[in-house]
Design a binder for these strands. Structure first.
Length: 255
DNA sequence: ATGCCCTTGCGTCAAGGA
């Protein structure tokens, strides 16, 4: 079973590139973030034609998350999570696919730092961490995949010490992510590739992708039951290089 | 120190992104 996460940066604007990637990569389950579309403009028909069932939690202009499943319908378990400090923002959707509970998340960016938006990011990450701890306690197979908007360590960045005033690299944000891993969530791609950066994002500025000035901010965290079955993973960098691409690349695992 | 580039919306610019 191949499970992917992809911040599409506009699901309608990117629909052709999304469909091309789905046909090429053939993931069994996909977490999408930054739909930038309200519920009634989610392209469910086009995705169904491509062979994917879907559940979604949209929002006009910003945020928005969805879960796709190839050849079946995801079994929706929740939109949003208990304790979310900003439930009006569509940042979480969760569904069961093929016996695995999958949480698809889009954490707040938190810029500019410092300030209220960064404080809101920390509050969201703390609340999400508490919810995730509850999932772990159930002992069921869970994958929490999405755009965490955290560069976990300097190694996950094109140049250690770069963008030091950015919300994505602040110690408090890194501590929130580290706390998830410390509680028992397995950072799948870092586990598989301890010596490779595995960037998932390159900004649109300054030819960042061509110069490989990237960062790793999209993560798949696995509960112990899933981590024990981890068989492989990667980042589809070529998707980032396609014309009209999102600024993120898909990241994926196989269990 | 700043902007670069890109998205969506009822829009001719703003706000958010990271």
């Amino acid at each position: 079973m191949k499970i992917a996460t992809y911040n599409v940066n506009g699901v309608n604007g990117r629909l052709p590139t999304l469909l091309a990637w789905l046909a090429e990569a053939r993931p069994d389950a996909v977490c999408l973030q930054e739909l930038k579309a309200p519920d009634d403009r989610f392209p469910a028909a086009a995705l169904e034609k491509a062979g994917y069932g879907a559940v979604w939690h949209g929002q006009s202009r910003w945020n928005g998350v969805a879960l796709l499943a190839r050849g079946r319908e995801p079994v929706l378990t929740r939109k949003g999570f208990p304790g979310d400090p900003t439930p009006e923002a569509s940042r979480y959707i969760e569904a069961a696919v093929g016996g695995v509970l999958i949480g698809c998340l889009y954490a707040p960016n938190g810029n500019p730092w410092p300030g209220p938006r960064f404080d809101a990011k920390l509050a969201w990450l703390a609340a999400f961490g508490a919810y995730a701890a509850g999932l772990l306690a159930h002992g069921v197979p869970v994958v929490l995949a999405g755009d965490y908007n955290v560069v976990p360590t300097p190694f996950d960045l094109y140049r250690p010490g770069a963008i030091a005033d950015n919300a994505l690299v602040q110690p408090e944000a890194r501590a929130a992510y580290a706390a998830l891993v410390a509680r028992g969530w397995n950072d799948a791609l870092r586990h598989l590739y301890p010596d490779k950066p595995m960037f998932t994002f390159w900004d649109y500025f300054r030819d960042a992708f061509a110069r490989d000035r990237g960062m790793r901010i999209d993560h798949l965290l696995l509960s112990p039951a899933v981590a024990a079955r981890l068989a492989g993973g990667g980042v589809d960098r070529e998707a980032r290089g396609a014309a009209g691409s999102s600024d993120h690349a898909p990241a994926w695992i196989v269990i």
